[in-house]
Amino acid sequence: MRAQSCEALVLVNEEEATGIRQMRVNLPAGQPEPKAGMFYMLRAWGADEPPLLSRPISVHRWDKETRVLTFLYQVKGKGTEKLAALCHGDRLSLTGPAGNGFPVEAARGKRVAIIGGGIGVAPLLQLAREVHPVAARVDFLAGFRDEVYRVDAFEPYCANIYVATDTGSFGKKGFVTDLLDTEKYDLAYICGPEIMMKNAARLCLAAGLECYVSKEGVMACGLGACLGCTCRTEKGEPVCVCKDGPVFEGSVFYG
């Protein structure tokens, strides 16, 4: 699928937790539909205004019937601050859907763990929605530093939800990997901070689970054109996060 560019109308842009926002936009008719794990390059400011580069944000939820596309994002710096300032009726430039997305068919008939850390839960809601009808069972395991967000949204699609927080403010005190009983699953999808993905993927791989991770990288084009997002596999081969990924088999990086 070729990425396209369009202007989307902002419907809602509201705070979900401290520094975490949810934005719903209307994807214009005719624009290709995204799948779980894909992302868009977002820009809410002029081409001649800083920051120079647009910002990659994953598809949090896609509602086909209403064409409502939801993003979940953490306000980190200049770009996401400008996204946070958008109001109902404002325009947002989108380029996408970009990236390969999660392999959903891989979950057919399997016992699936969806594992998220912090804002890494963003692409996992749409994943749960797509995997739920094909998998034998889907569990959601989420880790947060302190404040817990968006976990309720997973309830309709997941048999069990387990939560850990670093501070112990909610759920189990500890890391998301402490929640993972690899014997209960055949396949895991993981997204979160690099260190968490590495630890979770290594646990899964050691236990013989099939596993997929969604990587991050600094992006300029999001289209595979600039090679700015390249990172090295375990074997030292360059891969393009925006085009070959962002979803990779866990063994590619953590084998």
Binding site: P50, P51, L52, L53, V218, M219, A220, C226, L227, G228, C229, T230, P238
Partner: peptide, 16 residues
């Protein structure tokens, strides 16, 4: 490989 400046971009792709 990429670093933004106020009105520019510094790149170090290295002819991949």
């Amino acid at each position: 490989r990429l670093y933004e400046t106020p009105s520019g971009l510094i790149n170090s792709i290295g002819l991949q």
